[in-house]
């Protein structure tokens, strides 16, 4: 299939979007039907296909990831972490104030996220020459 397609950066990106959309639809349908095995198979098959296409693209010298994309990912991850943590903790306190058990769960998840963040922060700080 890849030989038929005149593969370039744009084709690879379109293929990845198409596969991701198909996997999303398949996951939605399989969860709706309560078949979690299909969900797992679909996720693994989707990831494997994307990896296969990316590897093919790399061998053809197509650049899919570079330092700008890496920086974009870092910034997006950082913002996502901050927003999700604040939302989790805020909702956690609100639900706790309303005596809802879910409040505790959200606060625990918030704490876990902060702990994981601290572990990775220390790891990268040390790796990049910090104390």
């Amino acid at each position: 299939m890849l030989k038929i397609l005149n593969m370039n950066e744009s084709t690879v990106k379109k293929l990845n979007v198409l596969i991701t959309a198909m996997v999303g639809v398949a996951i939605g349908l399989s969860i709706a039907q309560g078949n979690y095995l299909i969900t797992l198979i679909v996720v693994i098959a989707g990831l494997a296909t994307i990896r296969f296409i990316s590897n093919k693209a790399r061998t053809k010298g197509i650049v899919l990831e570079d330092e700008r994309l890496e920086l974009t990912t870092i910034k997006a991850s950082d913002k996502t972490f901050r927003v999700v943590t604040v939302v989790l903790v805020t909702f956690g306190f609100v639900l706790k104030a309303l005596n809802n058990v879910l409040g505790d769960t959200l606060l625990y998840i918030g704490c876990l996220m902060l702990i994981v963040y601290l572990v990775f922060y220390r790891y990268y700080a040390s790796k990049l020459g910090g104390v």
């Binding site: 650049v63 570079d66 330092e67 700008r68 994309l69």
Partner: peptide, 14 residues
């Protein structure tokens, strides 16, 4: 240029 530098065309544009 992007190919010579091993980056994407979007990076050169940026």
């Amino acid at each position: 240029l992007a190919k010579k530098l091993g980056v994407s065309r979007q990076t050169i544009i940026a």
